[in-house]
Design a protein around this nucleic acid. Structure first.
Lengths: 337, 337
DNA sequence: CTGTTAGCGCATTCAA
DNA sequence: TTGAATGCGCTAACAG
């Protein structure tokens, strides 16, 4: 375990120079003779010298690192966002530190503490489906560390947010189902604690109302997004006296699970029952029948969020803006509806 | 940008104590009166005090952080590995820092430098399809920082590695195709620079040989894993005078792309042509027809690699072991073959 | 152009 | 049980 870190002192000794001179070279300052500069650079290269960012961070109170916390990594949704965010961050000279909270509140809290302890310059976060208390996030505000929400946001905090127009997306999906002649449209909704679930539910209801259809609470099921539970709810819906002829699911994993269950039951999709999802996950175009879904500009969410965060970092606390960017969705019609 | 970090000094002043006393409480040392201990703890909590890990890392030369570098994040493969590795690391008290190199050598090199500069205690890496030079990785060895490879390994380095039995997996897949009566089996292979590609190719050839079939180089196509290129090769294979009646693809994304292209051409799978992939990605069970594939114990790869790395970290450099763990694959037969 | 000094936040000696 | 002093690796004044 005897790590052998090469330090400025090492190369200063070797070259019979003072540490400050070496430091000047390494930080790109000008006041150094060409000869010493080259000698230092050469030796540094030869010894695989790497600056110790811990020391620099300690001095400068800036780590050039942003943290990204996502609730899960199992669908293609969050990985894609992370890729886009990382790209923007790298471009701007920032490193990224990720963690995934596994949809667990405690893990999320722990993750934020780690980020805090590691002195990130700002964080990007999408909360878990469990998160109801936001104290661990408000700490960032108090400490003057910018925080930007994306996708799953915290309503009570006045900070930048990047979301999509969930209401409109849901509205369009359901409106389309109605226009296609569907009479009883069920909604497999997410937990009410998540704003995205609530907005999608509202879009669903609004579309029904606009088309003068009754809102049957029996057809609205709110669940905690654990895909393994979908089977129960589908069974329930199909056993209703007056079963639905369409299902609008809160997200693609739910819709995909529903398709598989319904197919196994021998029902035809979309003839007997139509399905629409939300997010246009990678798998939605692969499953049979391919899934009609509300597409989100996933990469744009990630890059916009990173952009906002970096702007915020470069701004003075007193000048923070709490903009909320609402990106547009697009209904992609495939074979499941 | 005026971050307001709370330090030990702040709470020492407030309580009229010395920094060392406060430090003792915070590090859990014993020699402190209950009264002061409680006062310190209470104030720390109230002020949202968080230790500055930069300072601690600087002193202890240990950050309790491991780095994970993966080539891409677009399939479900690496995210799953990362989840498993992170879980083991967390359990052992380590934080994780990820980065993805986007299948680009330069990015990989940059990522390793960042990890080095941030003083990770060890790294887990799967190299890009481009990586041919390993100097940036050998630096870790020289500096006494443990490195563990998984999936895509570097042959010339004597360090721990976690792989699956690619040879056997490929052999079983091709052997199964032959037993099912396929006569001309093509192989869409990966780049020769990746050991996994080479091993899978060898497994393919070996199965043909064992069954006394000729190895037709015309049917073996090595490509760089850019899925968009698959179309070209499929077109080529199908236009052969004596086209293949089966394709063994080096991985699932390739196989899935192939299925889509072949379906569009109006050919039937598996009647006209059978397809087998490798890895059992999330999507392979969803696509129609569902994909026969060689499953890897993905989570186990991640957890094993993390395990090995942590063992290595806790060992003295002089006592490093260069074990290579070879995990078993399993052929999952679905409808594409 | 170069060397000296101080200090970032903390843990860890050594004294009291 | 507490306090004072040292130093981790580095940068940024301040001198020469």
């Amino acid at each position: 375990m005897k790590k052998h870190q090469v330090t400025i002192i090492d190369i200063a000794k070797e070259l019979n120079l003072s540490k400050s001179t070496v430091s000047r070279v390494l930080t790109g300052h000008a006041n150094v003779s060409i000869k010493t500069r080259e000698a230092v650079l050469e030796l540094a290269e030869k010894l695989d010298y790497q600056k110790n960012m811990l020391a620099i961070g300690l001095i400068s109170k800036k780590t050039n690192t942003i943290g990204i916390i996502v609730p899960e990594f199992s669908s293609s949704y969050f990985p894609q966002i992370v890729i886009a965010a990382q790209e923007v961050a790298t471009q701007a000279g920032y490193n990224t530190v990720f963690s995934q909270s596994n949809e667990t509140y405690e893990t999320e809290v722990a993750n934020t503490k780690v980020m805090l302890a590691n002195q990130v310059d700002g964080i990007l976060i999408s909360i878990t489906r469990e998160t109801r208390n936001y104290d661990h996030l408000k700490v960032f505000e108090r400490k003057g560390i910018p925080i930007v929400f994306f996708n799953r946001v915290c309503d009570e905090m006045k900070v930048p947010k990047v979301i999509v127009d969930d209401f409109e997306g849901a509205f369009n999906a359901v409106d389309y189902l109605i226009k296609s002649g569907r009479k009883r449209i069920a909604h497999l909704a997410g937990p009410a604690s998540l704003k995205i679930s609530a907005n999608r539910l509202e879009g669903y209801k609004s579309a029904l109302r606009k088309n003068n259809m009754v809102i049957d609470e029996e057809l609205i099921i709110s669940y905690n997004l654990e895909v393994s539970k979908v089977k129960i709810y589908i069974n329930h819906l199909l056993s209703l006296e007056n079963p639905p002829d369409a299902i609008f699911a809160v997200n693609d994993p739910t819709a995909i699970e529903a398709i598989q269950i319904i197919k196994k039951k021998g029902l035809r999709i979309p003839e007997d029952i139509a399905i629409i999802g939300f997010s246009n996950d990678y798998a939605s175009d692969l499953i049979a029948p391919s899934l009609t879904t509300v597409a989100q500009p996933i990469s744009e969410i990630g890059s916009t969020a990173a952009q906002l965060l970096i702007e915020q970092i470069n701004r003075d606390v007193s000048d923070w803006k709490a903009v909320t960017k609402v990106l547009k969705t697009e209904l992609i019609i495939r074979n499941s509806s």
